[in-house]
Design a protein around this nucleic acid. Structure first.
Lengths: 204, 204
DNA sequence: GTGGCGATGTATCGTAGCGATACATCGGGC
DNA sequence: GCCCGATGTATCGCTACGATACATCGCCAC
């Protein structure tokens, strides 16, 4: 998952680790806590050995004996390669089971602007299906609650169920928006004049 | 986190691995996907070496040459020890930073029935604070959105913000309930006659 | 002018937990 | 008679996290 996210951000512009982490955290802040350096740097290392990104030293004179005016502290700028861009597109379009789990879905969704319309729709629908399954599981648990769920566990289930129902509704709105060829925020779901039905529209 | 959850369930009754996993998944279904055997068994192993639980072979004749009528396949029943029960109480009352993150909070909450009232309140308030921080982060991201957030990333932030606001409200209701000495589901938040203000009430 | 401190920056280590996989038994349907 | 799905135990490789270490930069108080 991190691989996709990093390639996506470096696709927009080269960056050094610290900046990358900050952007990762704003972009994915809604779906996960915070990317750790213990995840970031090893992944960057791997992406390099796989050839998806390259590392270039930031403005720093390595000439011995000649101390640079501004010793900028060897900050390393990471840059995506042509192969990396292909890899990114591949990962974007590759839908495994984990694509519909929380983290996977969040990352994919965050890069929807670069995803083609068909894939977007498939991801949204797969996610909806996944959440509906989860919802049913909780409904079962609540209805069988007489068994041995105490008041707090039950309350937790109710809260989870509510969150699921909300997410399903959210997804359904997004799916409707997609089908009508609009982007989220473009206008009200049932606008005064629907745009032309060219559903292959691709922003980004 | 798993350690606490396992001790909590084994506290209720001895169980074998398969059953434990199922119960774990119903109890924690609202907050996490599914506990893997790759997490469960190593943890059980560790809990044994630490002396918090013991392993006893289920009904199985190990007498050689005498095949049992019902070859029950060596299922292993795990049982909490006295030290394990102490350990459980310690973990329940131990509030680190991770107690207020998603997984940690969920597990603690799931065992609120065995937690004393003061700790419950501290956990709920800490969690609220944590979610409020997260909420502010997203608000920042949305208001600075002109920068470089596309429509989809923005929509994701909005959805995340909404979820945070909802959770804060949920937590506030729970906190009010706690302060009034009730349990969730006991009655409406502003009932006709508030119960006596003895806030040290301890269910479980 | 200097000493400290918070932000910026790179990096590793130990550990928790996941997903895939292997393997075995049991009951029931075809 | 046979296969299949549910039950059941267990390991392996990998991802990612949290803690930690360490260095530099800019700035402000003293």
């Amino acid at each position: 998952m991190l691989e996709l996210a990093i390639l996506g951000l470096l696709h927009e512009s080269p960056m050094h680790g610290y900046e990358l982490r900050k952007q990762l955290n704003t972009k994915l802040g809604a779906i996960r806590a915070a990317i750790s350096y213990g995840s970031l740097y090893p992944t960057l290392r791997r992406l390099q050995t796989d050839g998806w990104i390259t590392e270039e030293p930031g403005a720093e004179s390595t000439d011995p004996g000649v101390p640079p005016l501004t010793t900028r502290r060897g900050r390393v700028v990471y840059k995506i390669t042509a192969e990396g861009k292909e890899r990114f597109q591949t990962l974007l379009a590759e839908l495994g089971p984990e694509t519909f789990e929380d983290a996977g879905f969040g990352v994919h969704f965050a890069f929807f602007a670069r995803t083609d319309a068909d894939t977007r729709l498939r991801i949204l629908e797969g996610r909806r299906r996944r959440i509906e399954e989860r919802r049913e599981g909780m409904r079962q648990a609540i209805s069988r609650a007489a068994e041995r769920l105490d008041a707090y566990t039950l309350e937790l289930q109710r809260h989870g169920l509510d969150a699921c129902e909300r997410e399903v509704r959210w997804l359904e709105e997004l799916i409707a928006t997609e089908r009508s060829g609009r982007q989220p925020g473009d206008g009200p779901p049932t606008g005064p004049a629907a745009p032309a039905a060219g559903s292959t529209r691709q922003p980004g």
